[in-house]
Computed example of a mutant assay.
Amino acid sequence: MQFTQFADFLKEGRDLLAKGPVALVFIEDDVEVDSTLRHHLDAGFKAVIAFAPDAFAMAPDVADQVHRVSFDRTRGDSHIEAINQIIPLAQNQWLYYCFNAEYLFYPFCETRNVAELLAFHAEERRSAMLSYVVDLYADDLDQFPDAVSLENALLDRTGYYALARLDPDNHNHPKERQLDFYGGLRWRYEEHIPAPRRKIDRIALFRAKEGLVLRDDHTFSDEEYNTYACPWHNNLTSAIVSFRTAKALKQNPGSTFDIETFKWHNSTPFEWHSRQLLDLGLMEPGQWF
């Protein structure tokens, strides 16, 4: 199904949001569009909706399976406005959002689909799941000047850390079960990244409900949605492996000439398997075995 305007989708696309989980993929450029959409189709989402400018082509097999919405506002925070308009139309359904050249991984994703993941998470009385955005980058920027290569992708195996998330409405005391997470390229090249954009945590999987609002720091108006675990035990978390930061650093004139390579002594090839992310502590299985 194709919608020529975002407003048409809001009016006529409600049936697509009636049964979750639904993936909302925002296409910012023409890099790895097909692989991103195929990855999330294979994950088992009931519907994958691509918000993309008309100029970006899709492979026929992908175009036949995804629902496309003409969406030219693909820069800045336009996705936040779009998601906040979608939330009221998808009451009680699980939604997920990401961008092109980003790929969702979760524990045991090779043998279990995303619907099974979220069914278990919901049984633990959770309505949102923390995701860590793990930076990927090509091993050779001369060969891959946009820093994107699926076959030659590297990630940082260490250098991740968390800080208490302070509450300005409560004398800057730490918020309960909330942390700000850092690492990857946003940490190593922080001089090129605005401070509000340096965090790598994103509540990418969440259940829509009345009055819920996504904020511009990837957190929600309901503070419980922003927690990494329930009060009783650790919960599942997921990872989104992403070329988005690497792309931006190489596209930005203020940083591209300062970066000859993203490789360092803690780089390691990405194996495209959940076990590697679990072993590196970049997501948690919680009580799901």
Rank of each mutant, 00 (worst) to 15 (best):
Q2H: 13
L10P: 07
L10R: 06
E12I: 03
R14M: 09
D15V: 15
L16H: 14
P21V: 02
V22H: 02
L24S: 05
L24G: 02
L24Q: 03
L24E: 07
F26T: 07
E28S: 13
D29I: 04
D30A: 15
D34H: 11
S35H: 14
H39G: 07
D42A: 10
A57G: 07
M58Y: 10
M58L: 15
A63F: 11
V69N: 04
S70G: 07
F71H: 04
E81Y: 11
Q85N: 14
L89T: 01
A90E: 01
Q93V: 10
F105E: 06
Y106H: 00
F108P: 03
V114N: 01
A115L: 02
L118V: 02
E123L: 12
R126Y: 01
M129F: 02
S131R: 00
Y132Q: 14
L136S: 07
D139H: 03
L141E: 06
D146L: 04
S149I: 01
L150W: 06
R157Q: 14
T158Y: 11
P168I: 08
P168K: 13
K175V: 03
E176T: 13
Q178N: 04
F181I: 15
Y182A: 05
G183Y: 02
G184N: 06
L185H: 06
W187P: 00
R188K: 15
H192K: 13
H192D: 11
I200T: 03
I200K: 05
D201Y: 08
I203A: 05
A204R: 08
L205C: 10
L214V: 03
D217N: 15
D217L: 03
T219P: 00
F220T: 06
S221I: 11
E224R: 14
N226M: 07
T227F: 01
Y228L: 15
H233A: 11
N235E: 15
V241C: 01
K247P: 03
Q251G: 11
P253G: 08
F257V: 07
E260Y: 10
N266D: 15
S267I: 00
F270L: 05
W272Y: 10
L277E: 07
M283G: 02
G286E: 07
G286D: 09
W288K: 12
F289I: 10
